[in-house]
């Protein structure tokens, strides 16, 4: 079976290649420390939430080869759960995020056990349809606030110590949370579990014949990906103090696919890079209305036809390093 990622024909790493990921990570941390001095922190936090969302999505497409076209389901519903917990139940932010994340994990388990019954294109269509179903639930359920969403969600005081209504405090919190999840994903990718996932991506039949229960691995990866998308969605709800239908709509699922594709499927840093570019583009082109959608569509077409490695993939391939 052909692979969606083009990392298979990777060239041997040069001597610098083993250190490239560490260096890139340090550069990322340095950027996040300096960035608030010249970029509006709310925009940075938005980009970080989407970067985490895209990294979670990439865990599935990049390392198991499963294209989920319904990841907005986990992003949006975790945002609703987190916002509801913080606003109605009065949970502190750490518990609200935990509520949102747990919601995404449970939804991931249910959606995953249905979706992994089919492969390839069907998997994409099934996840899309399940997400659309949950979109209609969100539209009709009383607690989601319908078209208005859940507004004015209190950010609260983290661990009773840090007041998140302060812009810089919540920025530091979002950065720490993002980096922690990023390292967790990195750890998963290079763990023995991650190696089995890659084996399934390359050749599922052979992985089965080697005795791996591939369905369990796929489900586990799906739940992990949904859970991490849940962290992203919950954080987004606190940052913007809003959970709305936009977050569960299929356009959101499409956006996360776009970010990952643009940055580079199956690369460690690609999804984050893609997310930053798309969020920046949406921000600076916001005044152009429908042109944003048209440009996003054009990026899809260009990436698929000419640029399947994505930005980070191209760089990694050219320099013979891992990124």
């Amino acid at each position: 079976m052909a692979q969606i990622t083009e990392q298979a024909d990777i060239r041997p790493l040069n001597g610098f290649g083993l250190w490239s990921e560490q260096i890139a990570f340090m550069a990322l941390v340095a950027f996040l420390i300096v960035a608030p001095t010249f970029i509006y922190p709310v925009l940075l936090m938005k980009a970080l939430c989407f970067a985490l969302f895209a990294c979670a999505f990439n865990l599935l497409i990049g390392y198991v080869g499963l294209l989920s076209f319904g990841h907005a389901l986990f992003f949006g519903w975790s945002a609703y759960a987190c916002a509801h917990a913080a606003k109605v139940w009065g949970f502190p932010p750490e518990l609200a995020i935990l509520t949102g994340t747990a919601t995404a994990a449970v939804l991931g388990l249910v959606a995953g056990s249905i979706a992994i019954r089919r492969q390839g294109i069907y998997f994409a269509m099934i996840t899309l349809a399940l997400a659309q179903m949950m979109f209609f639930f969100a539209l009709q359920a009383p607690f989601t606030g319908g078209e208005d969403g859940i507004q004015a969600v209190p950010r609260g005081v983290l661990f009773g110590l840090f007041d998140l209504s302060d812009q810089m405090t919540i920025y530091v919190f979002v950065v720490v949370l993002f980096l922690a999840c990023f390292l967790l994903i990195y750890r998963i990718i290079y763990s023995p579990f991650g190696e089995v996932l890659k084996a399934i991506r390359e050749n599922e039949q052979r992985a089965i014949s080697l005795g791996y229960k591939t369905d369990r691995y796929k489900l586990m990866a799906f739940v992990l990906s949904a859970t991490l998308a849940g962290v992203a969605g919950s954080t987004k709800a606190l940052v913007f103090q809003l959970a709305s239908l936009t977050d569960v709509h299929w356009t959101m699922s499409g956006e996360v696919v776009l970010m990952t594709l643009l940055g580079g499927l199956g690369t460690v840093f690609g999804p984050a890079v893609g997310a930053f570019i798309i969020v920046a583009m949406q921000n600076y082109l916001a005044g152009f209305g429908q042109w944003v959608t048209i440009i996003q569509g054009a990026i899809f077409v260009v990436c698929v036809l000419l640029f399947r490695r994505g930005i980070v993939g191209v760089i990694a391939h050219a320099l013979r390093i891992r990124l």
Binding site: L261, T293, I294, Q296, G297, I299, F300, V301, C303, V304
Partner: peptide
Amino acid sequence: LLTFGLAL
């Protein structure tokens, strides 16, 4: 992915 882009 390509036809999704075209649809957009």
